[in-house]
């Protein structure tokens, strides 16, 4: 359908990956976020998978459907300062993220997005304090136990992550 684009995880984990779709409100002819949400929900219902995760940043919506737990998140790269980084990173991530200024905003936004995707996949996202969650951004090979994670290419200025439980 117009405005919907299928995405593949950047990292191949061999196991069955979730089905991921990126919706573009402009191309799909939807004028506001309400309509975008309705469209995303209908896509999920149409897919019929047992687990579904949605994330929005107007005009984009990101949807992932999977037979096991899955979480997805899309964010636009925003300005991040050190205070914010300190308030969402675990001690080990804080050490790992001391990188150059050039990539800082994208890195922090990406770390945040990876934690959002993971906490959504884990279930009740609000129970998780990002400062206590080792986000997939620092996982080795994008895996941790039964969990898999990968970035998604959604275009310039945006970062997106998908996280799922491998069966």
């Amino acid at each position: 359908m117009a405005g919907a684009r299928e995405l593949l995880p950047a990292q191949d984990h061999g196991s069955r990956a979730p089905r991921i779709v990126l919706l573009d409100a402009v191309a799909a002819g939807v004028s506001d976020s309400e309509g975008l949400r309705a469209l995303a929900r209908s896509l999920c219902e149409h897919d019929g998978a047992t687990h579904c995760s949605r994330s929005y940043h107007f005009p984009f919506a990101l949807i992932a459907c999977h037979d096991e737990a899955v979480g997805v998140d899309i964010e636009r790269v925003e300005h991040c300062d050190q205070t914010f980084a300190d308030s969402i990173l675990t001690p080990s991530e804080r050490i790992a993220s001391e990188c150059t200024e050039r990539g800082f905003h994208a890195d922090i936004t990406s770390l945040w997005s990876s934690k959002e995707a993971l906490s959504k996949a884990l279930g009740d996202a609000l129970q998780y304090d990002p400062r206590r969650l080792e986000g997939p951004g620092c996982w080795r090979d994008g895996r941790s136990g039964p969990w898999r994670a990968s970035t998604l290419d959604v275009g310039a200025g945006y970062v997106a992550w998908v996280c799922w439980r491998a069966s």
């Binding site: 929005y56 914010f84 969402i88 997005s113 990002p130």
Partner: peptide
């Protein structure tokens, strides 16, 4: 406000109210 905006809001609020958490905004 997105969840990222909420997290940024909380990181600023913590300067004055150290016990606040993102779930409080929700």
């Amino acid at each position: 406000g997105s969840s990222l905006a909420a997290a940024k809001l909380v990181s600023v609020l913590r300067g004055r109210f150290p016990s606040v958490a993102v779930a409080d905004v929700y």
